[in-house]
Design a protein around this nucleic acid. Structure first.
Lengths: 247, 247
DNA sequence: CGAGGTCTTGAAGACGATCAACAAACGTGG
DNA sequence: CCACGTTTGTTGATCGTCTTCAAGACCTCG
């Protein structure tokens, strides 16, 4: 295996699980073996559509994706942004019917976990079950943080919050370091995530840029002043639960 | 037991679980017996504070509560509203450290489930585990719906959405019927939930009232035109997963 | 070099926030 | 039962943020 190529599924799973708790190799293997093959998606393609009743859940191995709901007006609201290592629709295992779609934001590779195998895990692997559950709880924590950002922060604060969150999450799976990461998003996508108009995203971005907080060009985000950025965003990473503890 | 008094814990648990799936009496009993006593809280009192590391999770038996985060400015954002039957901080079982507080919105009675007993359930009761997990997944679905409301709906649409949601949720635990329910909230609380100013809540409320969609006086909410209200809110109850299915 | 997609900027206007005053409802004690 | 204070809700006026519409610049890739 080539060092340039993206991490193997096994490595990604181990990293992800071990950011939450100590996990045995056997447990990583069990989870790896619940995954049945991977599929490839182009940017813009739907991994899962709203109204679907998926028979498997999807983990992103490569690329970025988003959960989104589209309104009658055609307006779209993104409710979560997902990066490699994220189990995008693990909730469909128990929720059954999707209440939103999952769309690729960049070319994506995704691994599939059949629901009946996940059910087996809940019957045979209590610890692994708790970690999968935790995964969905962190998603909920992210949702809550977005709600706070949308409801009570300025647009700059809200956007800063998103940059902070993405940096911390990407670092946990080794896709960011030295306050720098690759972000394959466009401004319209950011607008749909923040609940702002495209024009205002552009202006808010200029604001952060001219305040020397972040620099984003050619897909590359550089955080120029972490302390001030987190202050603007009132960012506290607690909600991401990235400290390993017995769960 | 008196018909006027609130339903016993057992009845409430059974109703709640059975809105998701078929559940045996034995399972209801197991869950009931994980609960260790109840506590009473006055309106405004915190059931759990941000930064806490609770040793038990809390289920509301009577009264309403909210999860909230308070910012440096003193502004508050409510991220969820909870009614009887809701497991307000079940997520603390695995998340450990709270990232927000839980506050009573009205006088409340809450039952406590020690975390070590919940852990036992994950080891011995896979089906019950899945239903508890589902509970937290529905919370996440509610969060997503709120994000859509905040980001892409008008203030009237967003508020209408909240009324629709509360009605459906309360009906599931038999606390609403005939498009009517008791809502022990004040407008400032509603403002913190919707991410709006107090003044604007008052105006938006007037808008819904004069459009003959809802009537809210003396804690009593009447939904006057369900069809038009759901249209304004673009409300689709899928996300509440209130159709019993094998999980 | 040209064409599509992506981003930036300006101008006008809508929506919601803030400030400030007042009204209504509620609870308490006299 | 009324008087009073407190809490809760309403309304008006003004201001700022964000949206919308529109045009133009930039970039990337064939």
């Amino acid at each position: 295996m080539n060092v340039e190529s993206p991490p193997a599924l096994h490595v990604l799973l181990a990293r992800k699980l071990r950011s939450f708790d100590e996990v045995t190799d056997a447990e990583v293997c069990v989870l790896e073996q619940t995954m049945r093959g991977t599929r490839h998606f182009e940017a813009g393609q739907e991994l899962v559509s709203a109204e679907d009743r998926p028979s498997h859940s999807t983990m992103i191995v490569e690329g970025w994706a988003a959960r989104a709901r589209t309104l009658e007006s055609g307006a779209r609201q993104i409710t979560a942004i997902h990066v490699p290592g994220d189990f995008v629709d693990l909730h469909s295992f128990l929720l059954h019917k999707m209440d939103h779609s999952v769309v690729a934001l960049s070319p994506c590779r995704a691994a599939m976990a059949p629901h009946e195998r996940l059910k087996r895990i809940t019957q045979e692997q209590p610890h692994l079950t708790r970690l999968l559950w935790l995964n969905t709880l962190v998603d909920a924590g992210i949702h809550r943080t977005w709600i706070v950002g949308m409801g009570r922060l300025s647009s700059a604060g809200h956007m800063a919050q998103l940059f902070c969150e993405l940096y911390v999450r990407l670092k946990a799976v080794d896709l960011a370091r030295d306050f720098e990461f690759e972000m394959p998003l466009t401004q319209p996508v950011l607008a749909d995530a923040l609940g702002l108009s495209l024009v205002h995203v552009s202006r808010t971005l200029r604001e952060l840029r001219s305040a020397k907080l972040v620099d984003w060009r050619a897909r590359n985000v550089k955080i120029l002043d972490w302390d001030r950025l987190t202050a603007v965003a009132q960012f506290d990473p607690t909600y991401l639960s990235l400290t390993p503890e017995p769960r």
